[in-house]
Design a protein around this nucleic acid. Sequence first.
RNA 1: GCCCGUGUGGCGGAAUGGUAGACGCAGUAGACUUAAAAUCUGCGAACUGUAAAGUUGUGGGGGUUCGAGUCCCUCCACGGGCACCA
Length: 845
Amino acid sequence: MYNFQENEQKWQRAWKEASVYGCDPTQNRTSSCIYVLEMFPYPSGRIHMGHVRNYAIGDALARFKKAQGCAVLHPMGWDAFGLPAENAALERHTHPRDWTYANIDAMRAQLAVLGLSYDWHQEIATCHPAYYRQEQKLFLQFLKQGLVYRKRATVNWDPVESCVLANEQVIDGKGWRSGALVERRELDQWFFKITDFAEDLLEGLDNLPGWPNKVRLMQKNWIGRSQGLTLFLRVEGESEPLSLFSTRPETIFGASFIAIAPQHPLAKKLAEKNKDLNAFLQDCSRISTITADLETMEKQGFATGISVYHPFLEGKTLPLYVANFVLMTYGTGAIFGTPAHDVRDFAFAQKYNLPIVQVIQKEGETTLPYIEKEGIMVNSSFLDGKTVPEAFALLTKEAERLGVGKISTFTRLRDWGVSRQRYWGCPIPVIHCAQCGVVPVPEKDLPVLLPEDVSFDRSGNPLEWHPSWKNVSCPVCGQSAQRETETLDTFVDSSWYFLRFCSPRHESAPFAQEAVQRWMPVGYYIGGVEHAILHLLYARFFSRALRVCGYDVPEEPFTQLLTQGMVCHPAYQDTAGNWLFPEEVERKGAIYVKRADNTPVTVSRSEKMSKSKKNVVDPDKMVQTYGADAVRLFILSDTPMDRDLEWSEEGIEGCWRFVNRVWRLVEQYTKEYSPPKEENAAATEAFLRRIHPLLDQVTTLYAHVQFNRVIALLREGISVLYEAIEKQNIAEASLREAFRSWTIVMSPLMPHLAEEVWQALGEAPFVVTAAWPKSDPVYLVKESVDIAIQVNGKTRAVLSVAREAPQEEVTNAVLAVPHLSAILKGKTIERTVFVPQRILNFVLA
RNA sequence: GCCCGUGUGGCGGAAUGGUAGACGCAGUAGACUUAAAAUCUGCGAACUGUAAAGUUGUGGGGGUUCGAGUCCCUCCACGGGCACCA
C-alpha cells in the first residue's frame, strides 16, 4: 500500500528546503508571468472543506502554469481584522491580537499538510502594523483627492449598550446581547465615494470576458442604473421647488399624491411646526435599518395638508404626504404617486382614499394596478393616444422646454460607509480639532497603532473608552484634540491586499510599482460566489481610486474570476432531533443508524456544511486517513468547479484507491517489469496513438480549468499504461516517456505522489519543476474513424472506415452490411448528407 | 414581484448542431483466496426478443433542421441574486 504519511511529509520538507515555490523577483513582465490568487481566508481558527476546495483549485492551476514555463506568483495571507476576534476576546478573556495570531498559526499548519505551492515569504496579515500603516496612507491620499468624506448616516443603535451594532449583530430587530429594540440613529461617518465611479464600474463589466456572466449581472443589478426624469415642483408656502425622480414620468397625469421620505429635509422642516408630524417622524426612526423588517412593514403616510402644484395642469394641486415607504437614500427622496400603475402607490391610495386614475389602457387588460409599458395613453392631456415610449419622449421634452424637469440617471449604488465603531480594525488616521476641524495625521506619525492595553468588559468601542489613546494635540495648531476612534471596515483591507502581495515587504509605499507592473492584474482569482458583489466591487473601485491618486495600477484587478460552488453533505438527526456528525452515523443497507446505539437516523438532503447542523467533515481527519493527494483529487473530481459538490465517504475512498492503483502500476513497472526482447512496432504505434491524444486533451482541459474532466482522462491514461505493461510489447523508450509525461500530468493534482513516482522512475528531483510534456502531432491524427450511418437522421450502425474515405467508399461499406442494405433495399433515396469522418445520412423519400 | 441559472441512468457527471450516458460512485457476475479483505476481468437506460435486431428515451408541450441534450417559443420544477430603488 502506498505510504502517504511518510511520503507527504518527506516531500513537503524537501520542497521547503529546496525553495521550489519561490517566484523570481527579477523576472520582467512578460506574457509568461502569471498571478494565481485564492481569496485569502479570515483566520477563524480551523480550515474547512470550502477552503480545501478553493486552495486545491488554485494550487492545481499554479502548478500547471509553472510546469508550462510561467513565472507564477502564488501567495497566501490572512484577512485578519474583524468582529469575531473581539467576540472571542469577550468570551475567553483573551486579546483579539493573541486570538488572531494563534488562529493564523493553527491554520498555517493545517494548510501545510495539504502540500500547497505557496511561497510563504509572501505572507501578509492585514492586522500587522506594516500592512495597516500603508492602508492609512492610502486613506489619507483618498481624503486628499476628495474620495473620502464625512456624512451623517443611519446606523443600528443599541439604546441599552449605547453603541453601534453591525447588521449581523441585530437579530429580529433586537441587539444580540442586550435584546433591546434597535433604533435608527444618525451619526457622522466616513464614506468612500464609490458612486463617483458607478458609471465606470458598470461599463467596465463589459471588458471582463474572464468573469462569469452571473457575477457581472449581479454587479450590474447591484449598481442598478436607471434613467428617468427629475421634476421640480412648486410647493405651497415654500420658495424652494421640490425635486422628485421618476422612471415613468409619462404617468404624471395619473398622479394623485406626492410623497416624501421621513428623512427628507422638507419633512423635518415641516415637523418643526407640526407636533403630529414630528411624532410620525419619531415613529419611523424607531424602526431598525434591517431590510428584512422593511419588507413586512405596512405602508403608512402622514397628510401634511400642504398642496403641490401639478407641473402640466394649470391650477391642479396634489396633496403632500410624508410616507414611510419612500427612501431618502434613492433618487431625491420624493415621488409622485400614480396608483393605477404602481403596486405601492395603489396600496397607499386605497388606504388613504386617494383617486385612482388610469392613464394607460391596454385592450383586454382591466385589472389595476397595471404596471406594464404596453398600451395607449388616456386621460393624459397632450399625451392621449400615444404609446408609452412615445409619451415618455414627448413628456420629457416638454418638461425640459418648460424648465420643470430634467432627464437624469440614478443608481441604486450608494457610497460605501467604511466607519466601524470597533477596536479590531485599521484606525482611521485623522484627528478632530475644535479649531481646525478634521486634520489628517501627518505621514511621519503613521502608523496610528492600535493601543494594546484595552479591555472588553464593557460594551461599545474600546478605543472610545481608552483612558489616554484618543487624547492628542492637533498637528496644525497644537491645541488639545482627539483621535478618530473609528476603524475601517475590513472590506477595505481586502480591497488592495492583492497589490501588497506583489511586494509584501515594501516599506516606503503600499506596493512597489515595478512589482505591480510585473504581476498585476491577477490572472486567476478564485473564491466563493458569495463575494460576487461586495468584495469584488470594492476591489474594482479601489483600483480606480488608486489611479486617481496617481498609482499606475490596472483598472480591472482580476482578469479571470473563477467562482467555486459550496461543499455540501447530508445532515443527520437522531430520534430526539439532535444533529449528529457524519462519523457518528453508520449506513446499514438502505437505512442509516446511530453508531452508539443503533437507533435510526433521519437524513436530510445534501446542504452546505455548517457547524450548527454538524454536517461537516474535518479536512485534517481526511488527510490523516487518506492523505492530502487523495483529498485534493476527490475535491476536484466529478463535480465542475462552479457547482456545489457533495462530499462522500465513497468518493474519497475511490480516490484513495486510485492513488494506490497508480502506485501499484509504478511499482510493477519499476520493480517487476522487464522490457520486451522484441519490440512490436505496430503495438507501440497503437499505444502512442492512445496516449498522445489523451495528453493533448488533458492539457487543453487544464487550461480551461475543467479538473473533473482532467481527472477522467488521467484515469484513462493510467489504464492505458496498465494495458501496455501487461502486453509487454511496447518499445521501452516510448513506454518510459509515457510514464514520465503522465507523472508530470498528475503532479498539479497529486504533487506528493507524483514526486514519489518521479523518484521511482529515476528522474532527478523535482517533478514540480519539470516542464509540461508536449503531445506529438503525428499521433493525434486518426488513421481510421468511426462513422455513424443514419437513415432519416436515426443512427442505424457505426462503421469503422479510413479517415479520408470518400462518400462512395462509405456507401459501399454500408451496402456490404446485410441489415443496412436490407433497410435501404427498394427505397428511394431522396438525398444523402455526408459529413466526412462523422456521419452518412440517407434521407428516404 | 424583478433578474439570472439549472433540469441527462440508482447517484456525481461527459457530450464544437452529427454514435447520448466518457470517467467515477453504488450495484452485479466471475477470477484469485480455505475464507474474507484487497486486487483483477466482465456486465449494465428502459421495454420487446434466445439472438440478430427493434421501439422508446436528456423535466412537459410545440417549432427550426437531413439530424436537437445542444438553437427558438411556451409551460413546469428546483436553485441563486436583488427587493418599498419610484
